[in-house]
């Protein structure tokens, strides 16, 4: 029991990522309002960003800007600096996430113009009527 609890506490960032992901999932599946679905999708993507960021972080790690001479001489220990690569990857992932959100918002605007609502049930009802 003790080991389990220690595991939970020491890797709390990974647990937060899982919880966030489930919140996003729940919103995408359960919510009828399209905006809420979209926000769920964003939370889902943010959870993955947190996962990657945690991956690169180190306790007591410094910023990954090092002196070239020291680096070539092998005087830099990898455990002293955080790994910048996952963080850089997440910049790309954020760009992707922003573009998807932008397209989704534009599509939603078109849905609203077409049906006068962004509630899934109401839209389906209006499609049935027409």
């Amino acid at each position: 029991m003790d080991g389990w609890l220690a595991d939970l506490v020491s890797k709390y960032n990974y647990w937060i990522y899982v919880v966030l992901m489930m919140i996003g999932f729940y919103a995408m599946i359960r919510k009828n309002n399209l905006v809420k679905k979209l926000i769920g999708m964003n939370i889902f993507q943010t959870a993955i960003i947190l996962f990657y960021i945690s991956m690169g972080a180190k306790r007591g790690g410094g910023i990954p800007i090092v002196d070239k001479a020291a680096g070539l001489a092998g005087a830099i220990r990898a455990s002293d600096i955080v790994n910048p690569l996952p963080h850089v990857l997440m910049l790309t992932a954020i760009v992707v996430s922003v573009s998807v959100t932008g397209v989704a918002l534009a599509v939603m605007l078109k849905i609203y113009k077409g049906y006068g609502s962004i509630d899934e049930d109401q839209i389906l009802e209006r499609i049935k009527k027409s």
Partner: peptide
């Protein structure tokens, strides 16, 4: 209905 189908596809 294309925008609605597209939105489901986005999710």
């Amino acid at each position: 209905r294309a925008p609605l189908s597209s939105f489901n596809y986005i999710i």
